[in-house]
């Protein structure tokens, strides 16, 4: 599909930009930022109604990034779409820079405070209630990681949203299977997550390969189209560290940083995109 081809090109460009950002600040969470690239591309370039010129407009869909530290990959998207000046990508993580190691609400395009897990969904539920009370047809979309499901606050919000049939709320799970120290299923088994969400009153889709736009786009579009009478969740299976073979194989990739020369090798001699 032509559209998907252009989304794929975008995702490739964003991965390279994300690597370049990581080179500037090894403290950034690279692996976690690479697993959700396609999700962010799908939302920002195709599915959500957010005007870069008016990022807090009442007419926007609200994208609440609960796994904030794992979305350095959103920075190039925000620059590309015009939320922030493109030159911000060239001076990230310096004193006074807009772009920080963990995103904050001073960066246009971020709705809530990030950096602490298990907070986004509760706020997203409140946003969905608020939109409903205002008679708005806009959406509350929350992106979270799978490690976040260890937090009790997630389940408080999940139960509440199901009970109140919040059909303007969508949860997108970046299921990269890894928390900081180990595989999620070795810490507290999360599967079958789909069944768990379903019994709490959510309509759930699963995507086997979240890096394949052909698989990713249809359920995202269907969930966000609304009219389901219940909150929706898309559980997107992804690879943590996607695009960096050394990270893809490493259960501790969350806390791995790449050396500058390793980033250069990955970007290849032809690294004009990362300049």
């Amino acid at each position: 599909m032509e559209t998907h081809q252009s989304l794929r090109s975008k995702a490739d460009w964003i991965r390279r930009q994300t690597l370049a950002l990581h080179k500037a600040a090894p403290e950034t969470r690279l692996a976690s930022s690479l697993s959700c690239v396609e999700i962010l591309v799908a939302l920002h370039y195709h599915l959500l109604r957010i005007d870069p010129a008016d990022p807090l407009s009442d007419k926007r869909d609200r994208l609440i990034v609960s796994k904030g530290h794992g979305t350095i990959s959103l920075y190039p998207i925000l620059a590309d779409r015009g939320f922030i000046p493109a030159w911000e990508l060239e001076r990230p993580f310096l004193s006074g820079s807009l772009l920080k190691v963990i995103p904050d609400t001073f960066i246009p395009g971020y709705e809530t405070t990030n950096g602490s897990l298990g907070h986004g969904l509760g706020v997203g539920v409140g946003v969905a209630l608020g939109l409903r009370a205002k008679g708005s047809d806009r959406l509350s979309v929350v992106l979270c990681g799978d490690g976040e499901f260890n937090e009790g606050s997630m389940w408080e919000a999940i139960m509440f949203a199901g009970h109140h049939h919040l059909d303007n709320l969508t949860l997108i799970v970046d299921l990269n299977k890894l928390s900081m120290l180990d595989y999620c299923d070795n810490i507290i088994k999360l599967s079958p997550l789909s069944d768990k969400l379903s019994v709490f009153g959510w309509k759930v889709w699963e995507v086997r390969d979240g890096h394949d736009f052909d698989q990713l786009m249809p359920p995202l579009a269907e969930a966000l189209a609304g009219g389901h009478g219940q909150p929706t969740a898309i559980i997107v299976s992804t690879v943590k560290g996607k695009g960096v073979p050394r990270l893809e194989r490493d259960s501790l990739c969350h806390i791995r940083s790449l050396a500058a020369d390793e980033v250069d090798r990955l970007l290849g001699g032809d690294n004009h995109d990362a300049d």
Partner: peptide, 16 residues
């Protein structure tokens, strides 16, 4: 569910 109560309150406040 006090944690969710505060989260939901923040979300409603963001919506004005």
């Amino acid at each position: 569910a006090e944690q969710n109560t505060i989260g939901v309150a923040a979300g409603l406040a963001l919506e004005g």
